[in-house]
Every structure is written in C-alpha cells, then in structure tokens.
C-alpha cells in the first residue's frame, strides 16, 4: 500500500511537472514570438513584463530572465538618447544576472553578457572601448571554450576581431573565418528546445559581403 501510494505520488509529480512545463513552454513560445514581433520602444515593455512574470512564477527557470534581458537589449537598439539607452542596457544586465543565478556557467548567458557590454561600448566608445574590450573578449573566449559550436559566440567573437583587424588594417582571414563558420553553425545546429536562444543570424548582415570580398581578394 505504501509503495503504491508512493508510485502514484511519483507518477502524479512527474505528470504535474510535465503539465507545468507544457504551460511554461507554450507561454514562453508565445512570448518569444511577441518579442520578435515588437517594433516600437514602448512595445517592448509588455514583453519584458511578461517574461518577468513568468520568471517570478517559475522559480527554477533561467530562460524568462534571459529573454527579459534580450528584450531590453532589442529595446535599447531603438533608443537614440544615449543616457536612456545606457540605463536600459543596465536593466538588461540586471535581468541577465538573475538568469545567471539560476543557471551558472551557462554558455548563452556568458556570451550574452559580452554582447551587452559590446553594445555598451557604443554609448561612449572613446573611454569604454579600452576598459570594456578585454572583458568582452574574455566572455566570448570563455563561451567558445564551453561550446565551440555555439553560433552566437562564434559570430560575436568574429565581429570583435573583425573590428580590430579592420582598424589596424591587418588580415581579415581569422575574423572572417569565424563569421563564415558562424553562418554554417546557424544553419546546421538546431536549438536544444523551442525556447532555447536561437537569435543572431540576422546580425551576420554586412559582414558576409565584407568577408566574401576578402576571400576573392586573397584568391587573386
């Protein structure tokens, strides 16, 4: 009888958690779709709030805070005023910190911290370029070590190196190699789940052209 009770309890527990996770996954899927559909600065606020609500209800999941952070970054992209933009990026870092407390040594969180700081350089390039760059490189380097096949880590590392190589007029082979590899990775790798981070391919953008030019030049 006791064993039966326990079995029932265990079955119920599993079912309960699965049921829960279905609701979680579905709500997350819908919210992620809303995030990618958002256009204006204001339209991000309901999405950020929604992720925050899911986060406070689901005590063990890191994704809601990760996406709240991502939504803040997308919002910051659309803000012109540098002081306001910087404050929103700080919010993004704060949400990401909540995510990292739930999931330590998570490659997506590590690389995204580097990404946010990369955007923060743009607020004050003259002073932040020098102080933040080493930390950003360290974040991307750590992420690539954790998961060499992560397309975002590969792309952002490539972008950072591309910028420096372009500035110093040095060979673009290494950064372009990374960027091209990230395109392959974006195409080949499938996210672990429907709510795992899958963004970033659109950021390959202009680099494809610069890098293909680089390739033809080196072939000549």
């Amino acid at each position: 009888m006791k064993t039966l009770k326990l079995t029932i309890a265990c079955t119920l527990l599993v079912t309960a958690s699965l049921a829960q996770s279905k609701k979680y996954i579905e709500t997350m899927e819908a919210s992620i779709a809303e995030l990618y559909a958002a256009e204006t600065v204001e339209s991000f606020d309901p999405v950020i709030n929604k992720f925050t609500r899911i986060g406070q209800a689901e005590k063990m999941q890191w994704e809601p805070y990760y996406y709240a952070s991502l939504a803040n970054v997308f919002k910051a992209f659309r803000i012109q005023d540098l002081q306001v933009k910087d404050a929103v990026l700080d919010q993004a870092l704060a949400s990401l910190k909540q995510a990292s407390e739930l999931s330590e040594n998570n490659v997506e969180i590590v690389l995204f911290e580097g990404f946010i700081n990369m955007i923060k350089i743009g607020v004050d390039p003259a002073t932040r370029g020098q102080t933040l760059s080493p930390g950003i490189m360290a974040s991307f380097g750590k992420a690539m070590k954790m998961d060499p096949d992560n397309p975002r880590a590969t792309l952002f590392m490539g972008q950072m190196q591309f910028g420096t190589a372009q500035f110093f007029g040095s060979d673009l082979e290494v950064p372009c190699g990374l960027i091209n590899r990230s395109i392959e990775l974006f195409d080949s790798s499938s996210p672990e789940s429907s709510i795992a981070p899958a963004w970033g391919k659109s950021m390959v953008g202009n680099y494809v052209e610069s890098c293909s030019g680089e390739e033809t030049e080196s072939k000549k």
Binding site: K23, T27, E42, D45, P46, N49, K50, T52, R53, I54, Q56, A57
Partner: peptide, 16 residues
C-alpha cells in the same frame, strides 16, 4: 505610470 508590471504573485497572470 505607463509600463508598470501588475500580476498575481507566483502565477503568469498579469498585465502591463
């Protein structure tokens, strides 16, 4: 105050 997050604690239910 536009943009405030209003919700029932420990649930998904809420609005902005």
């Amino acid at each position: 105050l536009p943009g405030a997050n209003v919700y029932i604690k420990d649930t998904y239910d809420g609005a902005t």
